[in-house]
Amino acid sequence: MAQQHRKQFWVGSLVLISVGFLFAFTWGLGLISPLSSSNQYDVFYNFAGGVEVGAPVRVSGIKVGKVEKIQFLHEELPEPFTGTSVKLTVSVNQEAKSLVKEDSKFYVNIAGIIGERYIEITPGSAASALLIPSSKVRGIDPPRVDQLLSQGYGVFGRVQDFLEQNESTLKELLTTVNSLMTDTNQLLKTVDRKKLNRLVDNLNEVSSNFGALSRGFREPRSRKFVDQVYDLVDRAHQIDKEALKQFFQEEGVRARIF
């Protein structure tokens, strides 16, 4: 009988230890978290970039939670969630939830040499309010490499078509440019360097003089002069051509008499 009790004790102990191990594993795998209270947020993406359930959530690069759930959206949502197709429920633990604010951004990032996907939350500004648990947030979609490659492939295809269609023209253009460059080179060799330097100096001087002139025009006195000229031209424009002609004729007669 005692031997039977001993067997029962050992079997019972093994059962308890196994349950303990199972509990520890489920805790380690993140299926249960009995000691931590966390906030959950719903983050909406159009493209989630390969994030999976259980992927880490990091704030300032430190792991603070995980992706709890991923759901496809079958209905069109109102602004600012228009165009989103995936909802990620992410949890953030007690230590970091004070950093998740209304202006925090939710990025999908890649870490490690095998490209592990995770959610990176940028800490919000000090002035911003804390993000309420279960809030809905629009995440920042990661760049779609497949789309970029596809667009790049299209662009390169069009460039190739253009080159093939205008091959003769481009060859001619290149020949002309080459000839021009050769002629210019020869011209520069034949030109007297001193004259060329003087020309450049003169151009510099003209440029500086023109700068001084421009500055002079911006002075108040010059502005006044320019305004007066404008005024004069405006008034002269009002005078009829006939009256002007008559005036000059009469004044001319008078001038001849006196």
């Binding site: 067997k7 079997v11 093994l14």
Partner: peptide
């Protein structure tokens, strides 16, 4: 039950 406990002991505890 007794036989099951014996087998559990024989199979699990003694193999540990």
């Amino acid at each position: 039950g007794r036989e099951i406990t014996n087998q559990m002991f024989e199979s699990a505890v003694l193999s540990l």
